[in-house]
Design a protein around this nucleic acid. Structure first.
Lengths: 121, 121
DNA sequence: CCCTCCGGGGATAATTTTATCCCCTGTATG
DNA sequence: CATACAGGGGATAAAATTATCCCCGGAGGG
């Protein structure tokens, strides 16, 4: 994993949460897993904008912080399942709120983003 | 501002929220402003790990998405005050939860982070 | 005159995060 | 044999975000 050169503020709750949920696809992954979409290939199909590779990296970090658990079935073809840990469960309310707030404000935010380039017509 | 080359999923609530709160210091800024620490120099003193420059950039983005408002008093010495907009107020519950979750899990997260390098003893 | 404070930002570097590309084991199916 | 599926990851590039450096105007106090 990439080793940070700039230490992050370990005494700040906000920074801690950011460390867990800050990854681009982490919230989506957690959300999906909580809904039972818990196998790597399923997750990739659920989030096709990303790549297996990247999703694996983010999953690994979620696992490192014990927010999800990985179960490997030593079979052929291989089978892997992720699921939320207890700690992970405690994140769900937060995720829901993030999603709700985003949905409620989406129309506006979208407009702002699109207007950043449109103005140049 | 930097113009993104990879378009973000405009139909996803989580992505929208990330767009607003994703900046490294944005949650801290919002939190501080909500507490009445609302002048640029005060904010910088409250978040000395960052720089005026960087804080200004992030404040500008928060302003762009109408989460905060900037009031400029044309005086000498100049005076500027930020405050939450209505939209910004709706973020506060989210921020509180992020902070709480982070605080509750801080000991553990901290340990994980520190152990990433310590193992090499 | 020098330093401090208030506010600001251009230019550029460094860091961090994501993406891309391609290869791997092994089974099954056309 | 080729392709698809299940799982995985090294190497490297690109993108995005943060940091650093230094300068600006103007007022005020030693």
């Amino acid at each position: 994993m990439y080793e940070k050169k700039i230490p992050l503020p370990l005494e700040c709750g906000l920074a801690m949460t950011r460390e867990i949920l800050g990854g681009k696809w982490k919230p989506n992954l957690l959300f999906a897993i909580s809904q039972g979409i818990n196998r790597p290939s399923q997750l990739h199909r659920a989030i096709p904008q990303s790549t297996k590779r990247v999703l694996n990296l983010q999953l690994k970090e979620l696992e490192e912080f014990e927010v999800i658990e990985k179960k490997i079935y030593h079979q052929l073809p291989p089978k892997v399942e992720y699921r939320l840990t207890e700690r992970g469960e405690t994140l769900m309310p937060l995720l829901s709120q993030m999603n709700e707030w985003g949905e409620e404000n989406r129309p506006f935010i979208k407009r702002v983003i699109l207007n950043r380039t449109k103005v140049l017509d």
